[in-house]
């Protein structure tokens, strides 16, 4: 299975994950400061900033797009509970 490196900038930690892993599956276990609310793409609490590799995440769903828009998210902001890792990236809590 293809692997990808997810780096959590706030704790300076990198995790090698199988492609397709959701960020939520990793960030809490490793102790990153990305925080979660509903965990189902509705509340926007888990917004994170993608510092590098923003093309290495799955495209936002209609639901995620809507929540990002409502929360006035920047261009490189994503919901950690929604997006899946496709390649190397660096993220931090928004």
């Amino acid at each position: 299975m293809p692997k990808a490196k997810v780096t959590f900038k706030d704790i300076d930690t990198t995790v090698n994950v199988p492609a397709g892993t959701r960020v939520i599956e990793v960030s809490e276990k490793v102790g990153s400061g990305i925080i979660y609310g509903c965990r189902e793409g509705d509340c926007g609490t888990c917004m994170m900033e993608v510092l590098e590799g923003w093309n290495n995440l799955t495209e936002p769903s209609v639901l995620e797009e809507k929540v990002l828009k409502e929360n006035m998210a920047g261009r490189h902001h994503r919901l950690a509970c929604q997006c899946q890792v496709l390649g190397d990236l660096t993220v931090k809590p928004a």
């Binding site: 704790i11 300076d12 930690t13 990198t14 995790v15 090698n16 994950v17 199988p18 990793v26 490793v30």
Partner: peptide, 12 residues
């Protein structure tokens, strides 16, 4: 504990 650390997903 975690500066520059690299972890395998399976070890989490």
């Amino acid at each position: 504990e975690s500066k520059g650390k690299v972890i395998e997903f399976e070890d989490l």
